[in-house]
């Protein structure tokens, strides 16, 4: 084997043995140093999010007006916000909410987008026309206004926010998927699958989705950061999450008013968002390189 890291994990049964389904993919992830670092950082963030209540030094909602707007010090490692709440604790607890909303929104819109895009691109005709018009409707609204309306109707809350942002996001995935399917449908291997008697569902699952997925995954990784910023926008407009739920975007917009006197209130949540976004961009780039069918081999004939 050619990779020390992968071998060690494989021995401990963390990784599938070579030859098992997906084993090749995992092996190539471990061959790329940048993805390995990003993955380690992601695991770290996920661990922090999971064990945040144990790790955070203060109650994230404990208000202490005597110590408000403090800079970083020994007592409060990252300082305090305008209500004297400990920023480190809020960032740690907030990781859980920010990451779960971001993941939830991206997963929901990825699935809905793939399904709608496949249906539109593959079947064409009336299905394509109706799905495409629905996509156009969703894309013609500015996302924030649409999300604002939905949250306004449903009321605020983590789940409703997730739903609202997914409704805004899915159309972009569907449009991208539709375009991918349209070009793939004319490829020879789809024709040969049809000639050998394959059904529609089989062709979509086996031949179209694996070839079309790469750009969608890249979009998804970019969107993870985008979603966190969207939550910040909605919080700024006052319809994001309730004030007692710590969330990075909301912290960012709350700290904005004190930017001159206490810049750490925006810098630290901003850094947390930046880290997560950078991690996912690196992972997205890597996944695209690995999944791209034309990446290696090139022209054979």
């Amino acid at each position: 084997m050619d990779n020390v890291f992968a071998d060690r994990f494989r021995r401990e049964d963390f990784l599938p043995q070579p030859g098992e389904y997906g084993g090749d993919f995992v092996k190539r992830v471990f061959q790329r140093k940048d993805m390995l670092f990003a993955l380690a950082a992601l695991v770290l963030f996920a661990g922090v999010a999971l064990f945040a209540p144990l790790l955070s030094p203060y109650d994230p909602n404990a208000i202490d007006l005597k110590n408000k707007n403090l800079g970083p010090s020994e007592g409060h490692l990252l300082g305090t916000d305008y209500l004297g709440r400990d920023l480190l604790s809020r960032i740690l607890i907030g990781a859980r909410i920010s990451l779960s909303i971001a993941f939830g929104v991206v997963l929901i819109s990825l699935f809905v987008g793939i399904a709608a895009g496949c249906a539109a691109g593959y079947y064409g005709g009336l299905v394509d026309e109706s799905v495409s018009r629905v996509i156009d409707i969703f894309l013609s609204f500015p996302g924030v206004i649409f999300a604002l309306t939905i949250v306004g109707v449903l009321g605020s809350g983590v789940f409703n926010l997730m739903l609202a942002l997914s409704i805004v996001q899915w159309a972009r995935y569907a449009r991208l998927m539709r375009g991918q399917v349209l070009t793939l449908k004319k490829q020879e291997f789809v024709l040969s699958a049809v000639t050998s008697g394959a059904g529609d569902f089989h062709i979509i699952r086996r031949h179209i989705v694996p070839n079309a997925i790469a750009p969608l995954l890249v979009l998804a990784t970019i969107d993870l950061g985008h979603v966190i910023l969207s939550i910040a926008t909605l919080s700024f407009l006052g319809i994001g999450l309730p004030a007692d739920i710590p969330e990075w975007g909301a912290m960012l917009s709350a700290g904005k008013e004190f930017m001159r006197t206490a810049p750490h209130q925006t810098i630290f949540p901003g850094l947390a968002i930046t880290f997560v976004v950078v991690i996912f961009s690196i992972l997205g780039d890597g996944i695209r390189d690995i999944l791209d069918p034309h990446h290696e081999g090139g022209e054979m004939y």
Binding site: Q187, E188, F189, L191, S192, A193, T195, S196, R206, H207, P210, N211, L291, P293, H294, G297, M300, Y301
Partner: peptide, 16 residues
């Protein structure tokens, strides 16, 4: 009835 298209190299899915 089987059909063998021209350009047999294109008949294989590059992702599988």
């Amino acid at each position: 009835i089987s059909l063998m298209p021209q350009n047999p190299a294109g008949a294989l899915n590059p992702a599988l």
